[in-house]
């Protein structure tokens, strides 16, 4: 993966790499330990993360506003959630919960409830933190400490879908799509949060909703509209995880129509639209 900048969700899984980027690494260590010991410490740590960890972009040279790959506090907040998730779901055997311990599915339900509340009670940065945390959990999916539970199927009917658009199923997972799916309660909770962010006009929220979680769990219609919205907002498509793998014929049609509309209006074709036309050509 050389050359691909690590996003906030990736760095949340690598505290050692994240620590030196933080304003106050000591706070980060303390907060993660506090959250792991007591989940009710999470909301306060989430609110303070910008002041303690810093708010700068993770990749200042290519993403000065931290919109595309996220900010230092995005990664710190996502790491706090990972610290909680690791505790919540730690069981010695994936498939056979010991008697007397709560099952991983229940743990995922609890985590889902906490993430939903954090998002709805959060400001913009905290909402990004939740979305980047979902990314981290998806990326971590294949690791040995993975959350277990039933995967949610990616196929989903979008109620807003126009009846004339064929209801094709999503692209099935391929070897080129490394992201695994989250346990059903987390996916079910995360999807409406990502959809909420995609309705926003704040570029950083929209960009945070098209990471690995969005790539794995958003239905095709919603995901395609998200990609097109980024083009409208002028956010580089580098924000989109697994763009090449998920781009399909319908996205190609939408990109061609947008290009035609721009030409008819005598407007420039933005470079990211050109990129989209190129990807979807094959």
């Amino acid at each position: 993966m050389t050359g691909v900048p690590r996003s906030a969700g990736d760095l949340a899984l690598d505290p050692a790499a994240l620590r030196p980027l933080l304003r106050n690494p000591g706070w980060f260590d303390t907060a993660r330990a506090a959250v792991a010991a007591d989940p009710s410490a999470l909301p306060r740590a989430f609110a303070l993360a910008g002041r303690r960890a810093g708010r700068g972009p993770l990749h200042p040279a290519t993403d000065p506003a931290g919109v595309v790959h996220g900010t230092v506090d995005d990664a710190a907040r996502a790491a706090l959630v990972v610290a909680l998730a690791t505790v919540d779901t730690r069981t010695p055997h994936h498939d056979v919960p010991r008697p007397g311990t709560h099952s991983p599915e229940i743990a995922a339900t609890e985590l889902a409830t906490r993430l939903t509340t954090l998002y709805h009670q959060g400001d913009t940065a905290e909402r990004r933190g939740v979305l980047r945390a979902l990314d981290a959990l998806v990326v971590r999916g294949s690791a040995p400490t993975a959350l277990t539970g039933h995967a949610v199927p990616r196929e989903r009917t979008a109620p807003s879908r126009s009846p004339r658009t064929p209801l094709e199923p999503d692209v099935p997972g391929t070897s080129a799509t490394p992201a695994s799916s989250l346990p059903e309660p987390l996916a079910t909770a995360g999807i409406p949060l990502a959809e909420d962010a995609l309705r926003a006009n704040d570029t950083s929220l929209v960009a945070a909703a098209v990471g690995p979680f969005g790539a794995r769990h958003l239905d095709a219609h919603t995901w395609r509209h998200a990609v097109l919205k980024l083009v409208f907002l002028g956010v580089p498509l580098d924000a989109v995880a697994h763009l090449d793998e998920r781009a399909d014929a319908e996205l190609a049609r939408m990109a061609r129509d947008l290009a035609a509309e721009r030409r008819a209006a005598g407007r420039d074709i933005p470079p990211d639209l050109t990129r989209l036309l190129r990807i979807t050509k094959e």
């Binding site: 040279a61 290519t62 993403d63 000065p64 506003a65 919109v67 595309v68 006009n201 570029t203 960009a207 097109l228 919205k229 409208f232 907002l233 002028g234 956010v235 580089p236 580098d238 420039d268 933005p270 470079p271 990211d272």
Partner: peptide
């Protein structure tokens, strides 16, 4: 106009556009 990222040139922006 504010640029979300330097990789993108000639961006169309929130000041005018509602996506």
């Amino acid at each position: 106009p504010p640029a979300p990222g330097v990789e993108f040139e000639g961006s169309s922006v929130l000041r005018g556009v509602r996506a």
